[in-house]
Design a protein around this nucleic acid. Structure first.
Lengths: 180, 180
DNA sequence: CTGAATTTTCAGTAATTTCTGAAAATTATA
DNA sequence: TATAATTTTCAGAAATTACTGAAAATTCAG
């Protein structure tokens, strides 16, 4: 499978961004190819399109599965496994949110909680625990809020995101609103 | 400067998380020490606390400055430069949001826009552009929404985050609410 | 200015991460 | 159940990233 110049350039860009997104270059490239191609792809096609080894593709697919970013499909009469991305980009975004929360927030929340259970052994420790408490409360809020978003329908998410500056106004009015 | 067991264990944790947060181990550790210590720290103290070379600290501080995560202070009678983290963890969170948007979203938005300007040269390209359009619109929304958050006061942000399941209710009522 | 204190830079090295090919494991058809 | 197709694993190699010490640059008190 050969990529068109259009896809090629985006695939390269996703590769460069991959590491910034908590993936890595190959994973970024692989996902770009899968997202941009309408038909389901098998490992050999990905390997050829990106000029990387079959085994590398296998490892990459394993990782993309662990991120829940790809869907496995079977094509009648073909023993190979084929993969697609979800059709709805909102779904993809929500999945990324879930997974990044799991990887970037949850372990730290645990760690902060542990630290709060320790007995402070000096005034320095007391200060540290105070900051730990603040970080913990903040991350807890972000975490539960992100859980909230994860359970919203794409439509509702879109509504929320398009509010723009309306958001502030709504917040000002929220007490009035929630009383009912 | 020697770290207490309490700080030590969190510093190690932040080090491990560093790379997942788009920093790296040393940067994560450095920031943990700075956040958890009440008094401003100079490069030598950080170097000693983390057992890393002075030059490594220098590079790390440069990077933390580029992230706007630390504040430079001068102590009367001392020529060294001292650093602290913002007192308000919400400020830190907002800064992280700004910087990650700049690094993780903005370049891709540019790239997606470029791709949309290309002339599709096949039906495959047309499909690709359709997905690119969806990704672009989504990322644009997230980007401008995050800009919205960046300009909110900590208090308002806290209100928003504590809404929890109230969020959905508010969204349902928003049309009614915004008419006024 | 001068020079001591401090910070920054950077080439080389060390550590980590990613990638490959070969072999092992799994799967599914006949 | 045997075997051919396919996927996965993994040890070593390659590539990338991070770290160090020495030297250069900067800063500032006298």
């Amino acid at each position: 499978m050969k990529l068109s110049p259009l896809s090629q350039s985006l695939v390269l860009h996703f590769g460069e961004m991959g590491s910034r997104w908590g993936l890595n270059r190959t994973l970024g490239q692989m996902y770009a190819v899968i997202v941009l191609t309408e038909s389901p792809l098998n490992a050999d096609q990905i390997s050829e399109a990106l000029q990387i080894s079959r085994s590398n593709v296998s490892m990459g697919l394993k990782e993309l599965k662990s991120w829940n970013l790809i869907k496995l499909q079977h094509i009648p009469g073909d023993r190979k496994e084929y993969f697609t991305a979800p059709e709805d980009v909102w779904e993809i975004a929500k999945t990324l949110l879930v997974e990044r929360r799991k990887r970037e927030l949850d372990p730290t929340l645990t760690s902060l909680r542990d630290a709060l259970l320790q007995e402070p052994s000096s005034s320095e420790d007391e200060y540290a625990q105070q900051r730990i408490r603040e970080m913990h409360d903040l991350m807890e809020m972000i975490s539960s809020w992100s859980g909230e978003l994860e359970n919203m329908s794409s439509g509702k998410l879109a509504t929320l995101l398009t509010l723009g500056s309306g958001l502030s106004k709504i917040l000002e009015a929220k007490d009035r609103l929630l009383k009912k």
